[in-house]
């Protein structure tokens, strides 16, 4: 077997094991929450008899491991159960929300990843000079400001003062792409500002690390332009760390946008999760946890895969 294939198989197998472990933890976590599902459905005035009936109906009297496997088996077949609060199918209602979240994350990533890498390259090119200091300073500032505050600042200027974009990012299926993009402009701006700094600073550090190498000197002594040296000789050797930080930020764009979604009243996964946590809707919380874990593990696995493929020693063994 080609060594790369072997490594990739190992990484993917490891990802699946991690996924399984995450599902156990999610299930266990919701089990140790105080309170009783049947009680919370029927309310305080329920009779002991109706509580017992409902418990039997929901299978709550079975041992935990049996309920875990029943839940996992159903989830693997796409059946995430029914929400306790509104009796709707979780997979259907979450699918819509997940689509919205991915839509937002996609546009934020499309803007932030190339910008971060380009700014990183520029910062290295002008290391220690004013463009580097400006880029580093501004991105550090945007990372440091809490995202909800950033959200309200952006809203105040772009929505209220200049009326460039709507302050509430509501999207419907019937909207055209242009209308949707107009609607999500503000949350995209906030998300870009939040993730840009981290990715740009890591790109800068990873390339600067490589700039000490002898082969960078070789490239300089060929008479190449400084930016060509960085882009052609330094950056390809800094791909692995850059990809890792990019993936962590992409995962954040999907998993960590709860606050931004709430600020802009965006109908995504974050809002959905927050709503149902407050209503103690355990099956929905479990399902959201599972999806978030899958996104997180999947993206990190992808980062590992790209890092492996970017290594010429692994791709082209002796």
């Amino acid at each position: 077997m080609h060594p790369v294939l072997k490594l990739l198989t190992q990484r993917i197998a490891l990802g699946l094991v991690l996924m399984l472990a995450a599902s156990v933890m999610i299930f266990a976590g919701t089990q140790i929450l105080p309170g009783d599902v049947a009680q919370s459905i029927l309310g305080q005035s329920a009779t002991p008899q109706s509580l017992a009936n409902l418990r039997a109906e929901l299978g709550l009297n079975d041992p935990a491991w049996l309920r875990y496997f029943r839940w996992l088996g159903a989830a693997l077949q796409g059946d995430l159960g029914t929400a306790l609060t509104n009796k709707q199918d979780i997979a259907t209602s979450m699918g819509l929300r997940l689509g919205n979240t991915l839509f937002l994350a996609f546009w934020a990533a499309l803007i932030s990843v190339p910008t971060a890498i380009l700014l990183g390259l520029i910062a290295v090119r002008y290391q220690g000079r004013w463009p580097d200091k400006l880029i580093s300073g501004v991105t550090l500032a945007t990372v440091s400001v809490p995202e909800f505050l950033l959200g309200y600042i952006v809203m105040f200027y772009l929505a209220v003062k200049f009326r460039a974009f709507p302050s509430v990012a509501t999207v419907y299926d019937s909207m055209s792409l242009g209308e949707k993009l107009n609607a999500i402009a503000l949350p995209v701006i906030v998300l870009v500002l939040v993730v840009l700094g981290h990715m740009m600073r890591m790109t800068r550090a990873a390339i600067l690390n490589v700039m000490q190498s002898a082969y960078v000197e070789t490239a300089e002594l060929k008479g190449l332009r400084p930016f060509t040296v960085i882009a052609r000789h330094a950056f390809p050797n800094a791909i692995a760390p850059v990809v890792n930080v990019v993936m962590i930020n992409l995962a954040y764009l999907v998993v960590g946008v709860v606050v931004v979604e709430v600020v802009f009243v965006y109908p995504g996964m974050g809002q959905y999760l927050v709503d149902h946590v407050s209503k103690r809707d355990v099956p929905v919380v479990q399902a959201c946890g599972l999806v978030f874990a899958a996104v997180y593990i999947g993206l990190n696995m992808l980062a590992d895969v790209i890092s492996i493929l970017a290594n010429p020693r692994l791709r082209h063994p002796k």
């Binding site: 002898a214 070789t218 190449l224 010429p312």
Partner: peptide, 19 residues
Amino acid sequence: RGREVTYVAQSAAAAFNPA
């Protein structure tokens, strides 16, 4: 550089870009 004058380094292993 690289046209009129060129350079051969001590450690070729380090002086070539591995990628």
